[in-house]
Nucleic acid binder design. Structure first.
Lengths: 149, 149
DNA sequence: TATTGTTATACTCTATAACTATA
DNA sequence: TATAGTTATAGAGTATAACAATA
């Protein structure tokens, strides 16, 4: 008896609801830690994380890498520059744009943050096998693609 | 080579990030449809969905059933009562509380909404097998529990 | 004209605390 | 005193549109 496509709606078994509840539970936990320990909002820490991987990105590149809109990127960058964690440098090939990169302080903070992030992920996936983790990641990407189609 | 616990952080492979991006993609799609077609916010439709399953619940019971806080339940209920979709009746056993239930119009709307919700879920899980769907649901519940621990 | 990025505005969502009415 | 529920307030997230500067 497959129950993949129930004919009657049950909120508790409704995938978008389960996804939202799980995501909120995880986000809330992380947001609390990041704000308390590092005084960063989620959008700010995402920018730091991406800049640590790909320094000297333009705001436009960052909107794609972080799945944030350009307004959020602009505000997060402004806040991080004000906090001395990110710096802007001019873009020779396009005067409308500029490059963003981590300052030494920003990079030092990232090292702390990323260690904490990996520790949280390890807790969340504590009893997951490697196969389960890979399957979950793949399914989340499929659902994301289907939702955006 | 297991990559279940990477030593280095990559935002793109970071589970809380993937979860958030997938959940937001799904939520945005649903929220848009519900607002356009039914003029309901997510919290309001959740309340309608739960009341359709368990009529005459108290606000307190609804906070548990919907994983919303009591303020959100109170606001959503107020809005739904104003729209003529929900009605309140007195609770004989506790004067501080009251019962909420769907009006005939609320129930009629629910029938429409639930059909739409199931159709969306079907689209999202179009290429999922029954096993995959069950595995996803179980993994989301495990992560939720781990995040709240 | 089109594009990059910023600012303005408003609406939704969430969290804390203060408040009322009743137990 | 404690609990059920409401109201007030502010912060965070998100979306649209208008804008300045450059291509």
């Amino acid at each position: 008896m497959s129950d993949i496509l129930p004919a009657k709606l049950s909120l508790d078994r409704f995938l978008p609801y389960r996804l939202s509840v799980a995501s909120n539970a995880v986000s809330n936990r992380i947001a609390r830690i990041y704000r308390q320990r590092f005084n960063l909002k989620i959008h700010e820490w995402r920018l730091v994380a991406v800049l640590a991987e790909r320094d000297c990105s333009t705001p436009q590149a960052l909107t794609q890498l972080t799945k944030m809109d350009k307004i959020s990127v602009s505000r997060a960058a402004k806040s991080l520059i004000g906090a001395g964690l990110v710096q802007a440098s001019s873009n020779q090939s396009d005067g409308r744009s500029h490059y963003l990169s981590l300052t030494p302080r920003g990079r030092a903070l990232y090292d702390e943050i990323s260690a904490g992030a990996l520790a949280i992920e390890r807790q969340l996936l504590d009893d997951f096998s490697a196969d389960e983790r890979a399957a979950l990641e793949a399914m989340l990407r499929r659902i994301e693609a289907a939702a955006e189609a």
